[in-house]
Design a protein around this nucleic acid. Sequence first.
RNA 1: GGCGGGAUAGCUCAGUUUGGUAGAGCAAACGGCUCAUAAUCGUUGUGUCCCGGGUUCAAAUCCCGGUUCCGCUACCA
Length: 519
Amino acid sequence: MAAKNSFYLTTPIYYVNDAPHIGHAYTTVAGDVLTRWHRAKGEQVWFLTGTDEHGEKVMNAAEKNGVTPQAWCDRLVEEAWKPVWKDLNIANDDFIRTTEVRHESRVQRFLQGLKDAGHIYLAKYEGPYCIGCEEFKLPGDLEEGKCKVHGRPVETLSEENWFFKLSAFVPALIERYTKHPESCEPTSARNEVLSFLHGEVKDLSISRSTFNWGIPVPWDTEQVIYVWFDALLNYATAIGLGDEPGSEGAKKFEEFWPANVHLVGKDILRFHAVIWPAMLMAAGLPVPEKIFAHGWLLVGGEKMSKSKLTGIAPKDITDHFGVDAFRYYFLRAIPFGTDGSFSWEDMGARYTSELANDFGNLASRITAMIEKYSGGTVPAVAHDAGLAKALTDAVEVADKSMLALDFQGGIGAIMEFCKKVNGYVTEKEPWAIAKDESRTVELNEVLYNTIESVRALAVLLHPVMPATCEILWQSIGADTAIGAIADQRISGISTWGQLPEGSAVTKGAVLFPRLEEAK
RNA sequence: GGCGGGAUAGCUCAGUUUGGUAGAGCAAACGGCUCAUAAUCGUUGUGUCCCGGGUUCAAAUCCCGGUUCCGCUACCA
């Protein structure tokens, strides 16, 4: 595969039977931070998110609310989903909805292609069916022959469905995950996938005839395409899957496919690591480079859920801590890939310690000192070998970690540097030097080295906390002196001495005010 | 039932591959400093390393057995 300078990342498309909670936001923020990091590396980035709008559950939710499925989706997308991403400062390049024509037509074309190539066949699906649930049940859904949900006996029903020859791709999938372990991470997730593949994998029923909220099977319009088959394709339809050579869509697809990373929650790992690549293989397309399954956010030790009143809306948290603290906290506190416990206490502790005391306060003390001791302008460029080295190391570790989706490690390295700068200031005691007029040169050096370190911190933390770092960037005069923060490159951060002498520094409002006891 | 992962300081966790006096951050206590957001810097303490056996000069680490939590998978039907 030719080395390309593009980076294509997707979040799952979220199922619109309800409003987003912090679990959805966790995935999307992670995607946003990672894509912002790649943009800061100068890569051509495409970041896709969207909504999954077909299927029986959406149809039922709409019915219960007395509206058509389309109206239901339109309302949730416009009033709940898109606004939340806007509030969280998510810089997605596209937002796909599976009810859009661009998606539906490409899905149909893709499916027709698979059928023409012989990967689709008609067969009778027979199994236990619960009238109450109006769906076929799996053995695990049953208890003593009765539906667990309704506690009533199931009937054996059969339905003619179209099947995808999933089983035919098992050997190729096993080979893929064995030879390219990085294509499914973390390791625990890959092992689960492999263990599943080594079991008995059955062909997949990809159509339904019991309801009609979905994309019609092109050659059998009595049936609609199974919602997962439809949904997975969004990653490719959004960038022009199957379009005429030479068209805009085809160019985009050429540029960005295969996706570099599909971020998924661990509950939907198998769809992405088994079904999706098999679909692509069947179509003769390259498979995604990496499926990354992150963990769940736990509240009180349990997976968040609406029914247990643990479904927290992002706004509940951002109203108190602010958007940037939200973005920071989950990626900083939880190793990506393992479950993590959310608690107001822990978030409050980390906010105070790391954002207010370490980072925010460092910005306050240096801007205040430059105003007080240097007339509000950056003094002559100076150099401190210790800080410069620490910065170089921090950038190196942070970059390596972020690229590996180790957000905790990456942010940790940056914050370690921040602490080091605080230590430098305390040790040099600029306030003491300032009392001796013969030591002005020395004083200016300390001030310069500190503000220059803050310049680097602003760029390093920009992908994680864009709004706050932008404010900081302005307040140290960097915007005027060296250009927009968004144009700064990771590779250039550790070049010492960028903030020029004379830049205007103003001590603005504190970046992360101390908060009253959380909740 | 099978496979896999976890149980370590008040809290979150690292350390277990390659045995050698038990670690980090946060919280706590004490000291320094006063540029800063009652901030920051330094120092300090903290442990039946889930339980019971075994191997060894020496076990959080290796072996056997058990408890408990979690994930994947299967089956009972």
